[in-house]
Computed example of a mutant assay.
Amino acid sequence: MSAPAFTVEGVAYEAGLPDLRRVRETVFVQEQGVPLSLEWDELDPLCHHVVARDAHGEAIGTGRLTPKHTIGRMAVLPDWRGRGVGDAMLRALLVQATELGWREVSLHAQASAIEFYARHGFLPFGERFEEAGIDHQSMRLLPGAVNPVETREAAIAAVLGVIAGSRRQLHVYSRELDPGLFDAPEIVAALRRRAVAGGEVRVLLQDPAEPQRALAPLIGLAQRLPSAFAFRAIEEPTDRSYPSAFVVNDLGGYYFRPLGHRFDGETRLDGSGRARQLRASFDPVWERARACTEYRALGL
Rank of each mutant, 00 (worst) to 15 (best):
E42Q: 13
G121F: 10
S174R: 03
A97P: 00
I134Q: 12
P284K: 11
D270W: 03
V248I: 03
V162F: 09
V172C: 04
R194P: 00
V149S: 07
Q223D: 04
L181T: 11
A92F: 13
L278R: 07
V146D: 13
G10W: 09
A12K: 10
L20G: 07
A190E: 02
V196Q: 14
E115W: 09
G82W: 08
A109G: 03
K68T: 01
R64C: 01
Q223R: 15
R240D: 01
G126W: 12
L160E: 12
R24T: 07
P284N: 05
D239L: 01
D250A: 08
R288I: 00
D264P: 01
H49R: 09
A195R: 10
L170R: 14
E131M: 08
L191S: 03
R53M: 04
P143C: 04
R213K: 11
V188N: 06
A145M: 14
A109E: 06
R91S: 06
G72Q: 03
A109F: 10
D283A: 15
G84N: 08
I234T: 11
G33L: 06
P35W: 11
E130A: 09
G260C: 01
F282P: 01
S241V: 06
W40V: 06
Y295I: 02
G101Y: 07
Q212W: 13
A5T: 13
Y295A: 02
R168M: 02
T26D: 14
R83E: 09
A157H: 06
L300T: 12
L181D: 08
E25Y: 05
L204R: 15
H48T: 11
L107F: 07
V203H: 14
H108W: 09
F246C: 00
L278T: 03
V105G: 08
D135P: 05
P243S: 10
V149K: 13
D44A: 07
E153L: 05
R224S: 11
E9T: 12
V247C: 03
S244D: 15
D207K: 04
G252V: 00
A157R: 04
A145D: 15
G121M: 05
G265H: 08
A222Y: 12
I234H: 13
E186K: 06
L215M: 14
R257Q: 13
A184K: 12
T7V: 13
V8T: 12
L181S: 09
E31F: 09
V29Y: 11
S174N: 04
E127I: 01
G86Q: 08
R257G: 00
L20N: 01
L94V: 01
S281L: 05
T66S: 14
V285C: 02
P148K: 07
A195M: 05
R274A: 15
L177F: 03
L269C: 01
L177Q: 04
D178W: 04
E127M: 10
G86F: 09
A3I: 04
Y255F: 10
